[in-house]
Design a protein around this nucleic acid. Sequence first.
DNA 1: ATAATTTCAATTGTGTACAATTGAAATTAT
DNA 2: ATAATTTCAATTGTACACAATTGAAATTAT
Lengths: 144, 144
Amino acid sequence: MGDPLLLQNQLCFPLYAAAKETVRCYRAYLDPLGLTYTQYIAMMALWEHKKMTISEMGRLLYLDSGTLTPMLKKMEQAGLLMRTRSATDERNVEITLTDAGWELREKAMHVPSGMAQFVNLEPGEVIQLYHLLYKLLDQEVCKR
Amino acid sequence: MGDPLLLQNQLCFPLYAAAKETVRCYRAYLDPLGLTYTQYIAMMALWEHKKMTISEMGRLLYLDSGTLTPMLKKMEQAGLLMRTRSATDERNVEITLTDAGWELREKAMHVPSGMAQFVNLEPGEVIQLYHLLYKLLDQEVCKR
DNA sequence: ATAATTTCAATTGTGTACAATTGAAATTAT
DNA sequence: ATAATTTCAATTGTACACAATTGAAATTAT
């Protein structure tokens, strides 16, 4: 395998760089919507689940309250969602979408197909990559 | 394929999350060395190339001066490297390692094998993933 | 029932990331 | 040779990202 301390012999480096570049490419599509990539996946989570607590969203998106709390407050200010203390368990803050948050879904519909043009992989390769990434993600559990 | 605005139908999300989790897992090995992951790949670049300008490092690591300049200054403060204006082209800042920077290489030798335990993929899968990530990375050129 | 523990969101502090801009230095065009 | 352009590192401003801590609320243990 050769010298393990060479970038070209590391699996993590292309993973790190490809993720970063891909997120950067999203800007062309997300800037017009006024969303960052992290805000976009938070919106996707809410479009699907309609209502989530911050910790549920954190488990789904692999993010913690230190990231989510300030970001969700910003998105509340922007009128996309509402943050409400749960009546049944006051530790939880429930996130729900406003009308504007739901309307943004229509404008976001074209984002995935637009981004797909940057990914010039064969359909089979996309599926392979998808499964390998989830296999890696599911195994990686250095506590948390 | 179904609804494109579902997280589970997106390629980018597992890429983003797996990269983030992998970098987070590095902490267990890098904290004792006093390095962050980004500093670690900068050190790897320097261990290999011995001398680099900031822009060369930026092209190699997919990072810009806004990230590298303050980080390299911090690493200079920590005694790992030196920053010198090039005599032949004063626009360039050349980065070279100090003795301490070279000595850290010995302590970093065990990092890749330690990290490998988090990646429970078949050897063939690792190679597949590696090639797919580089294929994705090489194609993704939304200017810059 | 009360004490010990756990869960939760928020906060604090540090460290990336990157777009956009700046100003000096080098290269290219005329 | 000089002007226009390009390259480079640094700076500014915004936005994550996460470890560690805090304090309130809920759950569990005794």
